[in-house]
């Protein structure tokens, strides 16, 4: 665990860059985080739909959803998810949305 500066704030992140405390996240951090982890920018409405869904799920269930759950419940299909976040939708959306990395095999 380490601290870092982003969008004029100091936040705590784990070794892989995921937020430890999601309440430290603000929306203006998302585009910066996206650029860092290779998500195509500028972020589109669909990106934001996924990011907000990730956060809602996290605060509701204590963990972010896997790609399968995202595809079933976020309103964005698996195909689209991989276009939005080519290098792993659940993982990268969690990183940009300021929540810990979701755990789950499927």
């Amino acid at each position: 665990m380490t601290t870092r500066e982003i969008a004029n704030a100091t936040v705590e992140v784990d070794d892989d860059g995921f937020f430890v405390d999601p309440t430290q996240w603000t929306e203006d951090m998302a585009p910066l985080l996206a650029e860092e982890c290779g998500v195509p920018t500028p972020l589109t409405d669909k990106h934001w739909q996924v990011l907000h869904f990730m956060r809602d799920q996290y605060f509701d269930k204590g963990t972010g959803p896997t790609v399968r759950k995202l595809g079933k419940t976020s309103g964005v299909t698996v195909k689209e998810l991989y276009q939005l976040f080519p290098k792993g939708p659940a993982k990268l959306a969690a990183r940009c949305a300021g929540i810990p990395k979701p755990r789950g095999c499927v």
Binding site: P86, P89, A90, K91, L92, C105
Partner: peptide
């Protein structure tokens, strides 16, 4: 299948 899907999830 689980290994394939899981690998894609990791990019």
């Amino acid at each position: 299948l689980i290994m394939a899907n899981g690998a894609r999830a990791e990019g």
